[in-house]
Amino acid sequence: MHRIAFIFLLTAILASCSSKQAPELSKEEKAHLLGPNSSVSMRWHKVPGPDFRVYHGIPKSPAEGEIGFYIGGHPSFAPLAGSTRHAGKIGTHKVTWHRKTKSDGSIYQTTLFALDEDYKIHAWVLGKDPSELEALTLELGTLRLFSQTR
Rank of each mutant, 00 (worst) to 15 (best):
31 A>Y: 06
82 G>I: 13
126 L>D: 10
150 R>A: 11
140 L>D: 01
150 R>D: 13
44 W>E: 00
63 A>R: 15
127 G>H: 07
150 R>V: 04
74 H>F: 07
38 S>W: 04
18 S>C: 06
20 K>C: 05
76 S>I: 14
13 I>D: 02
34 L>D: 00
125 V>W: 00
121 I>T: 02
88 G>R: 01
40 V>F: 04
112 L>I: 07
85 R>L: 12
48 P>R: 07
42 M>A: 10
31 A>C: 08
73 G>W: 02
93 H>Y: 10
142 T>S: 08
4 I>V: 13
89 K>Q: 13
134 E>V: 10
36 P>K: 11
13 I>A: 13
73 G>H: 07
71 I>T: 12
123 A>C: 03
51 D>K: 05
117 E>W: 10
123 A>K: 02
84 T>C: 10
98 H>F: 11
60 K>Q: 07
4 I>F: 08
83 S>T: 01
52 F>W: 07
24 E>V: 08
98 H>G: 12
141 G>F: 06
127 G>Y: 03
67 I>M: 03
134 E>L: 08
48 P>E: 06
96 T>A: 04
45 H>M: 08
71 I>Y: 02
94 K>T: 10
26 S>R: 07
49 G>D: 00
114 A>I: 09
17 C>P: 01
42 M>K: 03
114 A>Y: 06
54 V>I: 13
